[in-house]
Design a protein around this nucleic acid. Structure first.
Lengths: 294, 294
DNA sequence: CGTGCCAGGTGCCAT
DNA sequence: ATGGCACTTGGCACG
């Protein structure tokens, strides 16, 4: 069986199920009336209510209610889950170190507890990202400006990495900042920082141009750009919905996905549970394990 | 019963359970092997794998795997959930409009499906926010500088609202930007924008000071501050562990948030209940009207 | 409903 | 580890 569930368990039965699930490294969901306390980067307290608790084998904890996409409370990956029965009530604590933070869920009643082995495949490919936009523009630099010649991406500067750096047809340095969404003032500031950094690098006489590339720009940002004599070029966001896309069937390789409609088709591109003697049993589960990713 | 579960249901049984759950406005969890497709603000595709699907009565959909805090795929609140059996397989689509986006989950096998009535109480209060920091500084302006006199918070300017505005003991205008965490270059830029905006307002002769208040600052940001003659004041964030005031005891409200049921009658195709003879049954659930919040 | 900005942002990848 | 930044950012408050 790949998924086990206990209904209306006693708090102690729930604890046993949790211990087993921790042992197996399962994904766990617990539903019941509970209160939640968090203390760490901030502090919060949640009164009693019916909620869904999700415990992942990587140490993640999520407390979900009725609505909203984000959990009302949570604990980041790398935490260690502890379960115990105290005063006859199931209590789940999820503890993280560095930064130190703790999530404590105290159950009044446990309606249901499920454990399932989830071999999550995360071979997700997303098109329409900023990287896609950059690649599209590298393919067709004229979309930015006729005669524009890209020289580098992520070019490092004093002020951070420049999305796209190149020269115009007159040989003047051009700093290009890419945004996949409508931009506000902060993007203008960011571009300004980069332009200033390049000007410092190249010398005072250098006339460095700055171009913000995005689908659109707010009024305020447009004014800021004008103030600093920076430019704006509009590019459309990814089409996706427009035509019969059916673009991505991914397997191993990111297959040519037409990311931006303007740009033709190019792609982008445990624990141990030891009973502590008294009326306090405990179980813990986690996965710290650093794996070299990439 | 407040939580119902079906184990290893047939795809059609799962559909029935979904229909009932939609009807009741339940929080739903589905576990099984599935593929996921998303198309909207971006586009993505997820190969087959064992995952947990959470459907909320407010239209939220979450696809969770084994690890990570964020779902691998999701749909924001306000979407409409549709369920159908197609080619003998359970298929859940969650559709959002404006922005248009669709999440489609196709199940190979359904291991388990649970529905639970969740009275979500979101009576959460968090301490340690930027607002907390601001209030603390309003209480003790000397923490910023001896003689500093706060005049306004969220003071509007051309460049956006200033966290805290006041005057120093010499009567010079002071722009204060608050950050609850260690700050990078963007905060320095932000402060610089605000200072420039106030200088434009007050006239050229105005010597406007800018103070960045945060626990600490990165080297690069410190350099940027120096360049623009901006200042930095280190202030520790409020210690959550110290006093942590037991803030919220909120009133008990039944909270009639049954979302699905009321909304759905307008849907064109709604063949619920009896066997639809064919291999295509469908159910839909969504969010209701907005209730006056606050 | 768009605009702007904070967030316990999260996640990713660089140094 | 820290830093810098993108993100289907999410969420809220305000014009």
């Amino acid at each position: 069986m790949t998924a086990t569930t206990v209904h209306q368990p006693t708090h102690r039965e729930a604890l046993w199920a949790l211990e087993d699930a921790f042992e197996r490294g399962d994904l766990i969901t617990v539903f019941g009336r509970c209160t939640v306390e968090y203390d760490g980067r901030a502090a919060s307290s949640l009164g009693v209510g019916r909620r869904l608790l999700v415990l992942k084998p990587d140490g993640t904890a999520l407390v979900h209610t009725d609505e909203n996409q984000k959990p009302v409370n949570w604990q980041p990956p790398g935490s260690e889950h502890h379960a115990a029965v105290r005063d006859g009530r199931l209590r789940v604590r999820s503890v993280h170190t560095s930064p130190d933070e703790t999530l404590a869920v105290r159950f009044e009643t446990v309606e249901q507890l499920s454990a399932m082995s989830v071999s999550g495949r995360r071979d997700l490919s997303v098109t329409g990202s900023e990287a896609d936009l950059r690649n599209a523009l590298l393919d067709r630099p004229a979309l930015i400006e006729s005669g524009f010649e890209p020289l580098a991406t992520e070019r490092p500067t004093d002020a951070g990495p420049i999305d796209l750096f190149g020269r115009d047809s007159d040989g003047r340095p051009v700093v290009v900042e890419l945004k996949r969404r409508r931009v506000g003032p902060s993007a203008a500031s960011q571009l300004q920082r980069y332009v200033a950094a390049i000007e410092r690098e190249e010398g005072d006489n250098a006339a460095v141009r700055g171009i913000l590339v995005a689908p659109s720009v707010t009024d305020r940002a447009r004014r800021l750009l004008a103030e600093h004599e920076l430019e704006f070029v509009a590019v459309e966001p990814p089409s996706s919905t427009g035509d019969a896309g059916e673009n991505n069937t991914l397997d191993t390789e990111p297959a040519e996905t037409n990311a931006f409609d303007l740009a033709v088709d190019d792609s982008a591109h445990d624990s141990a549970g030891d009973a502590t003697g008294n009326d306090e049993s405990e179980a813990a589960g986690t996965v710290p394990a650093d794996e070299e990713s990439n």
